[in-house]
């Protein structure tokens, strides 16, 4: 591939993710249908079946699923520069929108009308966080051990002032140690079941 066509591809990757970004409210899973259309139908960059694999990796590694997916596809198409341009494409539009909203919010937050609206919104945010716990809980709590780990970590977070990263590391270590004792197969089956059975 020549220099010119590589640049064209990188630019196209950037534009594609730039266009997907502003219409994906809620990020992550909301963008899957749009992503499919843009990268598998319009551009034929990947096969439709591969998208599921890419999403699985995007969920496994830390970070936003939408950003990870973009990075991953960008890399497969055009290497490191493709990964960077896809990442920039997906974060650029929302960056400017949030700056605008942040400026507006900081200016108007003490207006009685805005204040009243946010009094109504705050409980909904608690509900959304509970919903996230519920969704992850469905794939996480699959037996007594994982139920115990959930309860234990909740107690640690509630009563011990500790960095989240340490508790997360302990969890991962506990998983590796426990699985070494031979629960691995059962977990894989349960996980596959939860994945196909749940939303």
């Amino acid at each position: 591939m020549g220099e010119g066509s590589k640049f064209t591809l990188i630019w196209k990757v950037f534009l594609t993710f730039l266009k997907i970004s502003p219409i994906t409210f809620g990020g992550g899973y909301a963008m899957i249908p749009l992503l499919e259309k843009a990268i598998a139908e319009k551009n034929r960059w990947v096969k439709k079946g591969e998208i599921a694999d890419i999403l699985a990796v995007a969920q496994t590694v830390p970070g936003s699923i939408a950003v990870n997916t973009a990075t991953f596809i960008g890399y497969r198409l055009a290497g490191i520069s493709g990964a960077i341009s896809a990442t920039l494409g997906i974060i650029a539009p929302t960056f400017f929108m949030i700056i605008l909203l942040a400026a507006l919010f900081l200016g108007f937050q003490h207006e009685p009308l805005v204040h009243a609206a946010f009094l109504g919104i705050r409980p909904t945010i608690v509900a959304l966080i509970l919903l996230a716990a519920f969704k992850i809980g469905k794939t996480a709590v699959i037996d007594k051990t994982t139920l115990f780990l959930t309860a234990a970590s909740l107690l640690v977070f509630l009563f011990v002032p500790v960095q989240p990263i340490f508790v997360l590391l302990c969890g991962a270590l506990a998983g590796i140690i426990l699985q070494a004792k031979g629960k691995s197969k059962q977990f894989v089956e349960n996980y596959e079941h939860a994945k196909t059975g749940g939303k």
């Binding site: 966080i129 426990l178 691995s184």
Partner: peptide, 21 residues
């Protein structure tokens, strides 16, 4: 190995999110 790590990691993430709520 990654699956095992996630077997232990996911419950801790669940606990962490409940704590946040």
């Amino acid at each position: 190995m990654i699956q095992s790590a996630f077997y232990g990691l996911r419950p801790v993430i669940t606990g962490m999110i409940i704590f946040a709520a």
